[in-house]
Nucleic acid binder design. Sequence first.
DNA 1: TAGATTGTTAATCGATTAACAATC
DNA 2: TAGATTGTTAATCGATTAACAATC
Lengths: 206, 206
Amino acid sequence: MQPAPIPDIIICRLPLYLRALSQMAAEGIQVASSQELGARVCLSPAQIRKDLSHFGEFGKQGTGYNVAFLEEQLRRILKVDRVWDVALVGAGDLGRAIARHGGLVARGFRITAVYDNDPAKIGDQIDELVIQDAHRMVEDIRSRGIRIAVLAVPAGEAQPAASMLVEAGIQAILCYAPTAVIVPGGVQVQYIDPLVHLQRMTHSLR
Amino acid sequence: MQPAPIPDIIICRLPLYLRALSQMAAEGIQVASSQELGARVCLSPAQIRKDLSHFGEFGKQGTGYNVAFLEEQLRRILKVDRVWDVALVGAGDLGRAIARHGGLVARGFRITAVYDNDPAKIGDQIDELVIQDAHRMVEDIRSRGIRIAVLAVPAGEAQPAASMLVEAGIQAILCYAPTAVIVPGGVQVQYIDPLVHLQRMTHSLR
DNA sequence: TAGATTGTTAATCGATTAACAATC
DNA sequence: TAGATTGTTAATCGATTAACAATC
């Protein structure tokens, strides 16, 4: 008997729960019902309870959930009860904004390497980080054991860069390029394309 | 009899189809089957055909879809067969990266105003755009008739900024702040939080 | 004890897939 | 004509919701 595998659609909601719980904790809220948590993430109380029940019994009847405890459990489940090293590929405007993102560490990530293939940028710094030559990327990432990468390169360079990352042993890629990249099974890719979100909204404008 | 309303989950996929079709067109591909298009967006051919069938009959039996024609139809359905003016709130690293995004116009959007509340930034330029005082934002957006905004401010400023945008007549907000904002019905909000994507992936790392 | 809220089951709902007649 | 692929229907699948016993 395997433990039932958790549907991906449920995993996708956990970071939202975690984010809401962190906010509640910051507001000094110590206990929250599924009703209250649901209101924050725009989901039904039943959905919240059902989702959480896949991982254990975290609540108390008549009371709700202890915010700090549930936050801790979600961090553990999502494996962000530690800080992951992240390699950043691409030191353009977007790469720079990502590297300087202030809230990474608190949520489990730290950019520890930045690569670019523009000779004019190599050697420059983004805060403490020195931009490295992309030619050394595979060797460097491999030797440092980094497993997560953010891809902030132009669309045309996304596939070759992703292939290099796979070669380097990267297992999870967050891709900002507006194009699907092909990677072997076992390597996860998530995409962020703001234009997709904008286009989702225009459809129902007037 | 109303025309059947289109489920949101279908609208959400159309921008992905459009993106894939634009790429195909750029590669010189003139005709694509639902099989080929599905391969590009990682969906089944049946799904593609079902989705498109909500809007009309765009294909030809035995042949597939004319890429340029379907691209044109999707642009029309998503209302990006024009260019929308967009207001950008927040001129930090992220705001700057968004303002300088090269691919906006080709996909239906153009940043025409940037606001910040930091006196040190007001008056500075991002390429051709002059950073405006956020205090003038409501009046300015309203007088220019802008209906779409991108919110790139710190989490703590997201709600007040969103409320100002609503007051200014904004109907669609793309929010980069890692927090839910409350807006009246009829105003759409989409969120982008890279940490949510990273946390979705860590769960299944080893 | 009375009130509230969980965890879970069964029912509902909606989305995806498979299959195929129509037809290019 | 033969081969291919659409648009659509019916079947399947899975996710969400409603309801409630358990219990804090």
